[in-house]
Nucleic acid binder design. Structure first.
Lengths: 193, 193
DNA sequence: ACGGCTAGTAAACGAGCGTATACTCGGTTG
DNA sequence: CAACCGAGTATACGCTCGTTTACTAGCCGT
């Protein structure tokens, strides 16, 4: 028998850890925390179940590691302020089309009620989305406006996936832009009237 | 010993069924489908676990019965069209303050990925919220506008509860009103510019 | 060549889940 | 009073979960 029957993997702690992390990233983003089992992750990573506990302590620890490793959305909030609503709208629309992109956002969208997980996800949401967005805003109530925009930013796509996974049209993006303008405007009542 | 030691309940099939249904309504609304166990429901209703299966077939059947029994939101969408955005905004804001109200909405907000449950919840969401709202709209893209408004309507409060359960201020409601106006307007680009 | 460290494995643990079964017992009916 | 129907009960089944334990086997320094 030739030795490449099963293509034995070299023993590499760091590479295995990374495979598990990547599998968890994908699966958590796809199905959410509670619906993904440690066995699913291990199978997807082609690693032994026990290694998840060994390298990350627990399932919640692995989830935290996933969130830690995800890049921030800073670049989305940078650039000129005037076109920020449209950038948010386009990013939101894109997430509707390619739901497997951006596992962190999908994970945050559906992070559930597991107490252990809720706190770490909440903190991550604040540092990755809410705070950088708020930092860009001027005028009164910047915190409240950023909070509402974040809610729409994440909440819309979480719901949209449920009530009709249509690909957003140009008009949808335009409307979404108007929505973000209305909620980010620094006037006393936003874009109303 | 007086006979009221444990205040033995009279045997009443319909009353017991109703106690289970009410307990499920509350718990599902509070914690979502997956996080509520049949045992929790039975304990809360002070009924035997087996009765849940007897009266509702299964946990998913009980969930469906809860959704069936909840009243529609028709009244919210009735009335004059001009003030509809504000009514939506105020209702959304109220749900942020009193999250235990309206179990159906909370349930729909967080209905998860259980296939059995997703379909019934989706259908209920469409008939209770999306369709009546769409029926009120005129102009082109009424379906798309109603879909986006529904997404915001449910998604915002679902997210808001995560990133900061503050009671909405007057300015928040105003901003939310502007948001709904922007997304419900029948112009080509809503309220923008 | 050969211990020893360690990545990786196999298997089981205890707990909790939804569900199903066999039973008890109170109230009504003949 | 006795037979019976059905509401309510106690309990266990089969399963999956996250986690842990005891073990195997490859690589390295000497």
């Amino acid at each position: 028998m030739s030795p490449q029957v099963s293509e034995a993997r070299p023993r590499d702690r760091e590479a295995t850890r990374e495979r598990i992390l990547q599998a968890a990233r994908t699966l958590f983003g796809e199905h959410g925390y509670e619906r993904v089992t440690v066995r699913m992750i291990a199978a997807s990573a082609e690693a032994n179940i026990a290694l998840v506990g060994r390298y990350f302590g627990s399932k919640a620890g692995l989830f935290a590691a996933v969130l830690q490793g995800e890049p921030d959305l800073h670049t989305l909030f940078e650039g000129d302020l005037e076109s920020l609503p449209r950038r948010l709208a386009e990013y939101t629309a894109e997430r509707m089309q390619h739901p497997s992109d951006s596992p962190i956002v999908r994970t945050l969208e559906r992070f559930a009620s597991h107490p252990e997980v809720r706190d770490v996800a909440r903190e991550r949401l604040i540092t990755a989305v809410l705070s950088p967005l708020e930092a860009r805003l001027t005028g009164p109530d910047a915190g409240a406006r950023a909070r509402m925009a974040t809610s729409i930013f994440l909440g819309v796509s979480a719901m949209r996936r449920r009530i009709g996974p249509r690909t957003p049209t140009r008009a949808d993006v335009d409307r979404l832009t108007a929505v973000f303008e209305a909620c980010l405007a620094d006037g006393p009542q936003g874009a109303v009237e």
